[in-house]
Amino acid sequence: MQLAFYIAGAVAVIATLLMLTRVNVVHALLYLIVSLLAVAVVFYTLGAPFVAALEVIVYAGAIMVLFVFVVMMLNLGEHGVELEKHWLTPGIWTGPVLLASILIIQVFYLVRGGTAGLATGVVEPKEVGIALFGPYLIGVELASILLLAGLVGAYHLGFRKAEKPEIQYGRYTAERRAAASGDPVLARTDQLARTP
């Protein structure tokens, strides 16, 4: 059991790192899915089968699928890859890596000293359900309201209205910025995107 935990953890970390460094969006998405599945395995080894299942169904199954849908709809293609290569310079990693390492050191410092092992037992889905209907009832209701808000918002934002002057403005700004940025890749992408 412990071995499974470590292997799954390693897979998750490596998959996430790979995801971060891909230039192709779809590749990165796939790596993310792998990472999420690995995390599900970790949950199972920790004795939380309910959330393991939830992770797979909701997170990897619904949210990631949503991502894939949208990426496919955006249809970035070859020029997307070029853009990403253009943007992803080595020098850009320094600051965030520095910050992240400081944070990791802080986290390790905070959680030092705990020596409890794993395999302390499984928390049954039944227990989770009782907790949900008991003390966390309000949380459930609020989560449902949140989901409703998200639904309405996504519906409204997804609405592609007819050509409005604002869009014209946006197009002008983007066009000017893209052309004037001196960035040949960006300008080319912009130009390509405009041709229907």
């Binding site: 998200g150 983007a174 992408t189």
Partner: peptide, 27 residues
């Protein structure tokens, strides 16, 4: 579970926004 619900809502809205941004700014 709650985090999961929140993540779902956020992704839905966020991706809708991404689509709008792409429509306006073409990048």
């Amino acid at each position: 579970l709650f985090i999961l619900a929140m993540a779902g809502a956020e992704v839905a809205v966020g991706l809708a926004l991404v689509r709008q941004i792409y429509a306006r700014f073409r990048s």
